[in-house]
Amino acid sequence: MSTVILLLITGLGLGALYFLIASGLSLIYGLMGVLNFAHGSFLTLGAYIGWEVARVLGADNWAVFIASVLVGAVVGAAFAAATEFFLIRKLYERHIEQVLVTVGLALASVALFDGIWGTDPIYVTGPSWLGGTTEILGASIPNNRFILILAAVLVLLGIVAFLKYTRYGLIIRAGVENRSMVTALGIDVRRAFTVVFAIGGAAAGVGGVLASSYYGYVSSGIGGSLLIFAFIVTVIGGLGSLSGAAIAAALVAVLQQFANFYLGGTGDFVVVLLLAVVLLVRPSGLLGSKA
């Protein structure tokens, strides 16, 4: 029983991490039709900058931890908005070139991170509570899982509220459905593109700081390896669907944890299998609108 609880909560923590990346991927794809392979780099930069903040201000401190999460969000948002503005926008509607440019940026930024911070992983510490565990029904749960889940829920609620209650949110929801009609109402939909990138980048930046806490280290490859699973989550949830991404993130990560434990480390394989099954049975994903 305690193992099941541990796997479940750890899975949800990992799912929270997937969601922090997948939410942005899904929004960006939904509105612009761009598969953003550079999204992992937003996360990695957030992780490094978050670590720098902790290093300068002192790691074992809640205020510093929260500050590093917020700085990670800002840095991720800025990096993402700049990516949209300087690279993606120039290639408006040229989807293949857009994908290629994001792949190029992903490769180049990893090399840049290696150049700045070295190729060895940097071990991070945070407030001591984060490194500890909490007993739940006999299972010792690492505390950082709770923070991850909390952060993902807050990000989900924040994005939902933004989409529901702001004018940009309205434009984004309408644009996901029919972009050209939005422009035909006199709205410059390209501004919403920058906003969507910034939101996705902020969520990824938060994810970066929390991922370094989850894994205990930062490395230049941290975003890229999570990105693969985030893509799978996005496809399973239905490209462009935020709630689909949330459900799929939890599903994929929990399944992965259980398969790793009970089926001899086959977690990744089971996830890919799930992807194949979803693509065969429901090609538009769990909550996707059309193929």
Binding site: A174, E177, N178, T183, A184, L185, G186, D188
Partner: peptide
């Protein structure tokens, strides 16, 4: 397009094109 419309041109498209999820 958005600049053209902002000049005061209203458009009612064939097949309505209302935003169905709004």
């Amino acid at each position: 397009t958005h600049r053209i419309v902002q000049r005061g041109i209203g458009y009612v498209p064939e097949d309505r094109e209302v935003f169905s999820k709004l």
